[in-house]
């Protein structure tokens, strides 16, 4: 009996530090998460622009320029469907800026689908100036049929002779 009591006492004594350690770990975790939250909190650096916010809330485009809006003059004369070729100063692959512009134009002209390969019967040429546009037209086998501004216009594929 006495031996059993002593064994139990020893066991309890051994268990106590383990329990205290577990409690310490438990409370420590909660506390460290609280500290993490307070450390991570930082005030927002971005100001909310009141005019832009008003535009958004009123449901108007306002000061926001639609993606690819540079192509607005073309939209009126293009059909509402189909696939067209879209040529720029150079092939866009590997050039992030040209790719972004191409995708923005796709966004603007949707549901018309843009192909950056010179394979469709007609399309848009959108270059910086006439010289680059002429060079691109001759290397891809197209001809300008309706010029919109310098280096830009509607093109069709040349007939093969």
């Amino acid at each position: 009996m006495l031996q059993h009591q002593i064994t139990e006492k020893i066991k309890n004594t051994l268990r106590m530090p383990a329990r205290s350690l577990a409690s310490l770990w438990h409370y420590g975790l909660h506390l460290s998460i609280l500290v993490l939250i307070l450390i991570n909190y930082s005030p927002s650096q971005l100001e909310i622009h009141p005019v832009l916010l008003r535009n958004l809330l009123s449901g108007t485009q306002g000061s926001y320029k639609p993606l690819g809006a540079e192509l607005a003059p073309f939209k009126a004369i293009l059909p509402q469907k189909g696939v067209i070729t879209f040529l720029m100063d150079k092939p866009r692959y590997g050039d992030k800026e040209l790719t972004e512009f191409f995708l923005s134009v796709q966004n603007f002209l949707c549901p018309v689908i843009l192909n950056s390969e010179p394979v469709e019967p007609h399309g848009i040429i959108y270059c910086t100036n006439d010289d680059i546009a002429n060079a691109r037209l001759s290397e891809t086998g197209y001809q300008m049929v309706a010029k919109q501004s310098a280096g830009k216009g509607i093109m069709i594929r040349k007939r093969r002779t």
Binding site: S44, L46, E47, I48, H49, L52, L53, L56, Y64, L67, E100, L103, S104, Q106, N107, C110, P111
Partner: peptide, 27 residues
């Protein structure tokens, strides 16, 4: 506040949102 600030300055969202998710919504 942070969300509104971000959205007001970048209403079209990230790359995939502009050229993929919202493009499909336009279709």
């Amino acid at each position: 506040y942070y969300f509104i600030g971000k959205v007001v300055w970048n209403i079209y969202g990230g790359w995939d949102a502009r050229y993929f998710w919202n493009l499909k919504a336009k279709f």
